[in-house]
Design a protein around this nucleic acid. Structure first.
Length: 278
DNA sequence: AATTGTACCTGTCAGC
DNA sequence: TGCTGACAGGTACAAT
């Protein structure tokens, strides 16, 4: 669910709420929330709710950070709480929620709820936010100063995967998910099924500009709430109204009226206009 | 090495 | 109504 714009919206909300607050209690009704269970059904992190709670107890929040789709709360001792919302995760500041997988209470009685219907999301701690292996593996930030578009374009044009998959690869560029990739490819006139190595060099700046455009638009409207996404106040985003093609297979292309085509690309559903996208 | 498929989990919706 | 299967915004790992 949450891609860069949704995670950034949550980050901005929490940045106005958490800094200065001190943890007094942590509840983890679903231990999997801190253990990171994977496809084999086994825990990837050796962690218990008690150890997790003990590590957070007494910490004061200093800063709320984002890298790609990862969120971090940096504490007064330099350590960090890392969060990945995966498909249905929510971080909602407010009264304790009965369905929360984890709850962090602060000294003023306020609470941060981690809710997550599909239970793919996870919380973990790191001695240092930027040293965490998952964060370190990420490619550049598409909205950051450090994005070398030319180098990114060269790596894309050497990639044998389909463009849809290549853009979803977080090691190449951080933060894109299925919705924003689908939208950026439509705006760029590129079919998601094409091999990335068939892109022309002239396509690269166009793609880069459209990626930034759809991400900025997503942030401006506080994210796409297709179903589960909520901001840190529990409110829906309005960016869904701005989508041109995602979720609209069979409906007319907004540019040429040709019916939009829905396909699967490496297991992910996407949509394109057979007339406008080559 | 790089690319693709599968699994993790729950809820919803279409079709019968 | 109730069942079944397909599908959903992401990622890690296994298989090829």
């Amino acid at each position: 669910m949450p891609e860069l714009p949704e995670v950034e919206t949550v980050r901005r909300d929490l940045a106005a709420l958490l800094p200065g607050r001190t943890v007094t209690r942590v509840e983890v009704p679903d231990p999997r929330a801190v253990q990171g269970f994977g496809p084999d059904g086994r825990a990837r992190r050796r962690e218990t709710p008690a150890a997790f709670a003990a590590a957070l107890f007494g910490r004061t929040a200093r800063e709320v950070l984002r890298r790609g789709k990862y969120l971090g709360v940096r504490w007064d001792d330099g350590s960090a709480l890392l969060v990945h919302l995966r498909m249905t995760g929510q971080l909602i500041f407010g009264p304790p929620r009965p369905n929360a997988r984890a709850l962090i209470f602060f000294s003023d009685g306020s609470c941060l709820n981690f809710c997550d219907t599909r239970r793919f999301g996870e919380l973990w701690r790191a001695a240092n936010w930027s040293a965490d292996p998952s964060v370190r593996a990420l490619g550049p930030e598409p909205l950051g100063d450090g994005w070398d578009v030319a180098a990114w374009g060269r790596s894309l044009r050497r990639c044998g995967a389909r463009v849809q998959s290549a853009l979803l690869d977080q090691r190449r560029l951080a933060g894109l998910g299925n919705i924003y990739v689908t939208e950026a490819l439509f705006l760029s006139g590129v079919r998601p099924t094409r091999r990335a190595r068939t892109l022309r060099s002239a396509d690269i700046p166009v793609l880069a500009a459209n990626i930034q455009k759809v991400l900025n638009q997503g942030i401006a409207h506080r994210g796409v709430s297709f179903r589960d996404y909520r901001d840190a106040r529990g409110e829906r985003g309005r960016a869904r109204e701005k989508l041109e093609v995602y979720g609209k297979a069979g409906r007319p292309c907004p540019r040429c009226e040709t019916p939009l085509r829905g396909v699967k690309v490496n297991g992910r559903g996407t949509v394109y206009c057979p007339q406008c996208q080559k």
